[in-house]
Design a protein around this nucleic acid. Sequence first.
DNA 1: ATGGCTTCATAGTGAAGA
Length: 255
Amino acid sequence: MRLASWNVNSLRVRLPHLLDWLREAKPDVACLQETKTEDPNFPASELRDAGYHAVYCGQRAYNGVAIVSRTPAADVAHGIPDFPDDPKRCIAGTLDGVRIVCLYAPNGEAPGTDKYAYKLRWYEALARWMNEGLPRTPKLALLGDMNVAPEDRDVHDPKRWAGKIHVSEPERAALKKVTDAGLVDAFRLFPQPEKSFSWWDYRLRAFERGWGLRIDLALVSPALAKHCTACTIDLGPRKRERPSDHAPVILDLDI
DNA sequence: ATGGCTTCATAGTGAAGA
């Protein structure tokens, strides 16, 4: 079973890339973020023609998440429980006995701003959910744009980024509260190239220079971690013309 | 030292992303 996560940065703009990538990478389940597409405009028929079902929850201009899958998702749920949240940042479904949670964490703008406070509140709610719900969901995978680089090795220039958004200590602590529920960063279950990143700024030719962050994560429960066989970042789509600023993360399971 | 691009909403530029 192959799971994936990709912040496409506009499904409308990136649909040709997505369809090509689905053909090439052949994920069984792909969690998408920043679809920026209202539900009536979701390209369900194009995806159906490509052999995929989809569940989704989007809005105009910002946010929006979707789970695209070979078989239909069961028990679809929206949002984080007990966290009223207008932006469309969370959708969950069960595929082949694996509970999949597709997440688009708030950006947070900069420490000290209202958006930063909201990001920390969002993370608190996610941590509460995971700490309360994990024992009832043995095979659980959180995939998404978490907008936090967990460690300095996930940052191209930790000195330059110290204290900045995506890297600040409160954000890392907030993410750790989620993983402390018993989730592991699947990417780090395997040897990885140094300087492995999943996002590069459009400006500065950051991708060509390797100036990235690893902020797109696959977090798995212990029962699922045992079944992980590989976790990689697919740089192919980021090299194309007019790419998303994020690259897909691919997680392979032996189930 | 800053900001550099892309997308969307809109019809000029401004907001937001990260």
